[in-house]
């Protein structure tokens, strides 16, 4: 195991809601670690506790129990924050500021001098694909920007301090397919530069394409963590056989204990052509649904 960039130990968070201060458990003892220079995905359905976990790491909320360390220091720590870049979910920025003013403000908080702030802002706007828009309308306030553009600005401000750890809460939210592709490329570039990326999502394809390792959170509980292929069950679910006769195509699923030879023999005897035979193992979607359903059934039983 390499250097740990994030480690959480039995991290718990509950909130008291409503007039009767009913206790709601948002995170129920989550423990896992993120290693240096990996892209780590925090996967879970809406309301699973992903954002709560990230807010705990960022010092926006305090744990009810348990502890977390980021970049080797207990959360929250100013020295660690100096080396972290963070994009909140659906980011809200001061809408009266222009794009460059926002980046300047964030740069000031990191103690960057004016020249360095200007240099980094220019490079980052180029990197997130906003430099042309900013050149055309430099003083445009952020309230005039679209959601996708705000997301790009959010990523730019998260990188203003050239961080070692980049934490992105739902970074693909509000982006069109081209934007999503660009952000995926950017995350891969960040890993290539030696940075560590933690991001939350419920979009499975992003996880499959990007993540070295994932943690699955359902109903505030960790349902598993590790490399995607290790989490998936190697068990054969079924074999998919695609047959064609004339213009018609037919698909049959053969159970693992079914007689595949007999199915193929019968099809050929009936004058059909075998187009493909594909063994189907568990996909990330199957795993995700399995964990969500297991979590839901546990909640309904309790």
């Amino acid at each position: 195991m390499g250097d740990l960039v994030i480690s959480s130990d039995n991290l718990q968070k509950s909130f008291r809601l409503g007039i009767f201060r009913k206790r709601v458990e948002a995170l129920a003892g989550v423990s896992f670690a993120v290693e240096k220079n990996e892209i780590f995905g925090l996967l879970g359905p809406n309301g699973a506790g992903k954002t709560t976990f990230i807010k705990l790491l960022m010092g926006l909320i305090f744990p009810t129990a348990g502890s977390a360390r980021v970049l080797g220091r207990p959360v929250p720590d100013l020295g660690a924050k100096q080396r972290i870049g963070f994009l909140p979910e659906n980011p809200y920025f001061y809408d009266y500021l222009s794009c460059e003013e926002l980046l300047d403000l964030m740069g000031r908080l990191f103690g960057l001098d004016a020249r360095e702030r200007r240099r980094r802002a220019g490079a980052l706007l180029e990197r997130v694909g906003l430099s042309r828009i900013v050149k055309e309308s430099a003083n445009l306030p952020l309230r005039k920007y679209s959601k996708g553009m705000l997301q790009r600005i959010g990523i730019a401000q998260a990188l203003i301090n050239d961080p070692e750890l980049v934490v992105l809460d739902e970074p693909m939210s509000g982006l069109d397919p081209i934007g999503r592709r660009e952000i995926r490329d950017l995350m891969v570039d960040l890993r290539r530069e030696g940075k560590t990326v933690l991001f939350s999502t419920h979009i499975l394809s992003d996880v499959e394409l990007l993540c070295d390792r994932v943690a699955i959170i359902v109903d505030g509980k960790l349902r598993g963590s590790g490399p995607v292929d290790k989490l998936l069950s190697p068990r054969l679910l079924h074999t998919e056989v695609v047959l064609a006769s004339g213009d018609r195509t037919e698909i049959c699923e053969v159970a693992p204990d079914g007689d595949l030879d007999a199915v193929l023999r019968d099809a050929l005897a009936a004058g059909k052509h075998v187009r493909s035979v594909t063994p189907r193992r568990e996909s990330l979607e199957d795993l995700f649904m399995r964990e969500v359903e297991a979590g839901t059934s546990r909640v309904s039983q309790s």
């Binding site: 807010k55 960022m58 010092g59 926006l60 100013l78 020295g79 924050k81 100096q82 972290i84 963070f86 994009l87 909140p88 980011p91 809200y92 920025f93 964030m106 908080l109 990191f110 103690g111 959010g154 401000q157």
Partner: peptide
Amino acid sequence: FALLPKPL
């Protein structure tokens, strides 16, 4: 949310 995770 964007400000407090900064070194502040």
